[in-house]
Amino acid sequence: MVPAQVETIGLRVAFGPVVAVEQLDLAVQPGTAVALVGRNGAGKSTTLRVLAGVLPPTAGEVRIAGIDVTRDPAAAKAQVGYCPDVGGLIPRATPWEHLALAAKLRGLRPGWQERATSLLDRFDLLGAANRITAGFSHGMGRRLSVVLAALHSPTVLLLDEPFDGVDPLGVEATLEVIAEARAAGAAVVVSTHLLALAVACCDEAVVLRGGRVVGAAPATQLAGPVGEQHYRSLLS
């Protein structure tokens, strides 16, 4: 069996007395996409932050491409492309400066500029590449965050609310990026409240409630009115 690119075993994240994630077991195979769905405060963003190496787990094991994120966080982060849930952008840096910084810190070879330009073009951000992001709309910021996550063609793509406030063309571009990443063998984890889009881009959906997994099923089972009814029953 192919080893999972993303694997959590008994993941627990607590902020003092508040437990955000409890006993989360997750495995995402290469070339597949998993949607994390659930109500606000279910633990989706916290899980993605842990997978991205931004937040240390309180307990449990987390492996990215076989690398333990607590033991070798830099190596794990090198495999990951992460789009945070809110903001995610330095307010007085331009998109191009974000990309150049990412390229430098990720050690990308010369030539990254072509891919960066292509991604900016695809997300309709080329005209704004040299403007500071403080003046961006919410949707522009979301699109740029996806571009930054995809720049280095990561083996693990983590997208937290990538469709939030994004126009249809931006949604289309994001779906294309996810499809390309999967085709290249990357494992993709998408957190979203938009069930239809989760169904459209993912193989499996994991439903979280109160930091615990309350259901996991092929994404297609959550499609349509029947799937939505099933999803709502899991949320409550």
Binding site: K77, V86, L89, I90, H98, L105
Partner: peptide, 12 residues
């Protein structure tokens, strides 16, 4: 600001 989360995810 909000970019701190993204920066923290970079491998340096």
């Amino acid at each position: 600001a909000g970019g701190a989360t993204w920066l923290a995810s970079l491998p340096c």
